[in-house]
Design a protein around this nucleic acid. Structure first.
Length: 291
DNA sequence: CATATGTCCTGAGAGC
DNA sequence: TGCTCTCAGGACATAT
């Protein structure tokens, strides 16, 4: 579930590791299958031990830990991964521990952790020459916090796919996932089934505007912790944006915007989409552009 | 080329 | 109670 707001919250949560040196990487005992580490755990260890962390950045839904030699550790939480300073929800799902040099200051963390309940997450070590080909514009679109109407129309406007499905494609725009795609389109008042080719510039303006607003608001609330309780910030505290959801997982409930419509759940590209048929469906739209 | 579908993985919850 | 089944959706591989 972690999307841009959750991943950004994790990034901010571990910023205190900047300036610290990694001294060891351990793979805590687990009865579960190991997550994918590339090129390998041995190589990761060899390359990062002794390196000082220069920065922690984010690209879409990935966190990049920048090392002094120009390489990066890329952490992908995917569905159920967390990047933590402490207090993992379970010991069982601890996948990687990056140990930091001991400064003998009790308040300072001695490590940061990669925890993953389902094992779908990934950790990569990339040298400086691999960063652009793996994470550059050819592979991932511009960050969703930086989109404009012009960028959206340029990158998605030619697609015949429904707008909701196109927003999930990380090659178009990076950072939007299933939850926020529904939320953004609800605020923008746009039918999730509408083909990208049918959107007007005015509608792209609404999408870009609400993309930034919804994601920024969600970051302010430190992301969304759903009913399963999996998502946590770096200190293992839940987020708060779930209390502000307008449509996601609210199928059958009354629309909080118009108080008239009932939130509908449909499936698009094997994923749930939630929307309000009153707020988000314009009369007079030709049926052919609803895909 | 664009778009669609299958796959990985575990835990939660439903139904019997 | 404990079993089996289905579902959740990130990103990418493979198919159309």
């Amino acid at each position: 579930m972690p999307e841009l707001p959750e991943v950004e919250t994790m990034r901010r949560g571990i910023l205190s590791v900047v300036g610290r040196q990694i001294v060891a990487v351990t793979c805590p005992q687990s009865t579960l299958q190991s997550i994918e580490i590339t090129p390998s755990l041995a190589r990761l260890r060899k390359q990062v031990c002794g390196q000082t962390i220069r920065d922690v950045s984010r690209r879409g839904k990935r966190v990049l830990v920048h090392l002094e030699d120009g390489a990066v550790i890329v952490m992908e939480p995917r569905m159920a991964g967390l990047i933590l300073l402490d207090n993992p929800p379970t010991e069982k799902h601890l996948r990687l521990c990056f140990h930091l040099e001991d400064r003998s200051v009790a308040e300072e963390t001695a490590h940061f952790l990669f925890w993953d309940k389902r094992g779908l997450g990934k950790v990569h070590w990339l040298d400086s020459s691999q960063i652009e080909p793996r994470l550059g514009r050819e592979r991932l679109g511009p960050d969703a916090l930086e989109v404009t109407a012009r960028i959206l129309k340029e990158r998605l406007g030619g697609s015949r796919r429904p707008i909701k499905v196109a927003l999930l494609d990380q090659k178009g725009v990076a950072g939007i996932g299933n939850l926020y795609a529904s939320e953004i389109l609800h605020w923008a008042g746009i039918d999730p089934r509408l083909a990208c080719t049918a959107l007007t510039l005015r509608q792209w303006e609404r999408v870009s505007c609400w993309t930034r607003r919804v994601l920024e608001q969600a970051i302010e609330h430190e992301g969304s912790t759903l009913a399963d309780g999996t998502y946590r910030n770096a200190l293992s505290n839940p987020g708060g944006y779930q209390n502000h959801h307008r449509v996601y997982d609210r199928g059958g409930e009354v629309c909080l915007q118009c108080r008239a419509g009932t939130i509908k759940r449909i499936v698009q590209a094997q994923r749930s989409t939630y929307y309000c048929p009153v707020c988000q469906c314009r009369r007079g739209v030709h049926p052919a552009v609803i895909v």
